[in-house]
Design a protein around this nucleic acid. Sequence first.
DNA 1: ATCCTTTCAGAGAGCGCTCTCATGCTCGGC
DNA 2: GCCGAGCATGAGAGCGCTCTCTGAAAGGAT
Lengths: 348, 348
Amino acid sequence: MPARPAAHRPTLEAVAARAGVSRATVSRVVNGGAGVRGPLAERVRAAVDELGYIPNQAARTLVTRRNGAIAVVVAEPESRFFTDPFFAQQVRGISRELAAHDNQLVLLLTGGAADHERVGRYLTGGHVDGALIFSLHADDSLPVIARNAGVPTVIGGRPTWPDPDTRRRTLYVDCDNRGGARDAVRRLLALGRRRIAHIAGPLDQPASIDRLDGFRDVLPDIAPGLIAEGDFTPEGGARAMERLLERSPDLDGVFAASDVMASGALRVLRARGRRVPDDVAVVGFDDMVSVAEWTDPPLTTIRQDIEEMGRLMAQLLLHALEPASDPDGVPAVSSIITPTRLVVRASA
Amino acid sequence: MPARPAAHRPTLEAVAARAGVSRATVSRVVNGGAGVRGPLAERVRAAVDELGYIPNQAARTLVTRRNGAIAVVVAEPESRFFTDPFFAQQVRGISRELAAHDNQLVLLLTGGAADHERVGRYLTGGHVDGALIFSLHADDSLPVIARNAGVPTVIGGRPTWPDPDTRRRTLYVDCDNRGGARDAVRRLLALGRRRIAHIAGPLDQPASIDRLDGFRDVLPDIAPGLIAEGDFTPEGGARAMERLLERSPDLDGVFAASDVMASGALRVLRARGRRVPDDVAVVGFDDMVSVAEWTDPPLTTIRQDIEEMGRLMAQLLLHALEPASDPDGVPAVSSIITPTRLVVRASA
DNA sequence: ATCCTTTCAGAGAGCGCTCTCATGCTCGGC
DNA sequence: GCCGAGCATGAGAGCGCTCTCTGAAAGGAT
């Protein structure tokens, strides 16, 4: 890999020569100018402008051990990532927060085990200062890889590792899935529904489990026939709805673990001639604006502020990265659980 | 910005000491091992494994001036980027190709002028070896920024600069928008349609212009009332369709410049009681699987292989980056125009 | 005036790696 | 058996930057 022809960019040295000062002084000015007297700093700044000087990141990183880049690792194939508005919103929140602190976002999608290896190499390679990991399934090795690579990490969603100590030391941001699910079911009960079914997400993901647990908190004696597992896609939601109708034709309420699945369920209910909410009331989860507001009828759902969660993840990570501004030497950051809220529209 | 506590990773030096060779030899082995005798190389490899040595990217970049990362710059706000499946497919193609060559993808979204500045800084900062730029609107400054930053660039879609010399030296990948549009209109003509309207994309984008030009190639005397400008969103397509129906209630064919807009148009046609394709035949553009196959009725459209175009963009850029394997000193790469194809489904 | 403190600027040592160049070795040909 | 060709290895000079350490100058107190 031969070096490319030098782009011939001016270096610190050149600026220093031009301004008639030392490299150190230029460096100070470029990095905020603390401790450099006004006029001198001015002269340096002029030289920087004249030469069009731009710091070389690699050189900087080499000594500071900071990249100014954060990896966003999504454990889903591209197809899901780009299809599901959930990711879009979360990435938007992250991207905002990172940009505000002049950090770059490096997107890593890892669909299968082969990709995991590549992602692991990348994290280990020290290209990024930290990682935000998403959409973990059970036993996912990514966080462990990140930990071994010494890359500070914040996880989106509650992690599931059995070891309580590991768990305690892992930063994550999640919403109150269980509480939200309880609210959803209570809404259906309040509407007088008595045969309430649940379309769960993939049960290897903590969010799905927590929502199912919330459902069971309110309806502990639910028949297993009233629970069907989906996969967070509209088609999965539709299939689950079909199974439920087959097994329990008399159901009068459905709590779907995501708006996207609820949209599929609505389609099936309509096709089967059930009126929503008259015959069957439906509550979703997420309050994904692009979905919940546009279904027919508009979806009653549990709102979680996904974009905000993304922002919080980024914020948490950036805090954790800060060289302990705390006197104790340990920055005071901890995992965050965000609240949920029932949003009533037409479907329940 | 004080240095973080040294992660204490083993360095080349350490490996060299362990294997009892020089740094240079270890470097050679790590980078492919050319010119190192078998047994020695083996010893080095063993030392690497024992110490868990991983090369420091920053140090490498500092000397090679290569960082193994490519920026994908999308001149659209996040909302559009994550909503429009077009980008998803293109990014997928790019991501595949880059991953295959061990290059990282750095995603840069730039919604407004303020972001442009940040992106410019990033490109100029030398974080990436090259850039793929997308979704350019007229007079967009991004390619100029990239050029000034000395960052090799490939553009998605035909660029529009007036200066022919600049244009000639710019690499891009585009599909045969004009030819595809002609095919679309000819299909409608072949079905016996005589009042054919066009829903154009935003006319500050070359793709929209080319498709409109193709439309006019076949129907040079089209009334201006039969052309409405959309914005590549379903809502935009719907609004354009409404305008068209108002102005020309007797239209019997529509060529929409994208499937996404066509889906909006179909909704409006249905709402207005027009049967598709009986009363009004509709042809889209893109053959976006997730859209065209799921509309009601499924959409007849012009297929362009978006993912492949993404792949080609990445390939072109990687070639351009290669240190002139050509004897002439200039790698033989040039812009690419991919073909389009009519895909007949039910809507026309 | 003297001394001490404080502030500002420069010198210089790396950060970890690659790559050129010099060196020493092996080996084939005469 | 000698010489030069050819190849494997080592030595060392940077790449461009940050940061500590030191020295000089400036200010205040005595």
